[in-house]
Amino acid sequence: MELFTILLLIGLVVCAVSASLAKNLLNTLLIFMAFSLMMSMIWLLLQAPDLAITEAAVGAGVDTVLFLLTLKTIHALKGTRFDKGHDEKH
């Protein structure tokens, strides 16, 4: 069990580093969502099921939706119809 915990914690560090190094904002966001899910598993291992439920619903659910909608508004979703150049905006 301790080994699993340490693996999860190392996964958290890897996710945090790659989220801050990724160039594409969408990749950053998806990695951050994985970070939240691992965090909710760690809450379960720390005997805090209330936190696990809240983190899974809020961190991985609502937070990600808000970030995605922001990315859509700022035209950062490359390769979709939301990706527009600077010229069209003026």
Partner: peptide, 10 residues
Amino acid sequence: LIKKIIGLNI
């Protein structure tokens, strides 16, 4: 700014 907000969340 988005990266900054994610750093804050971490």
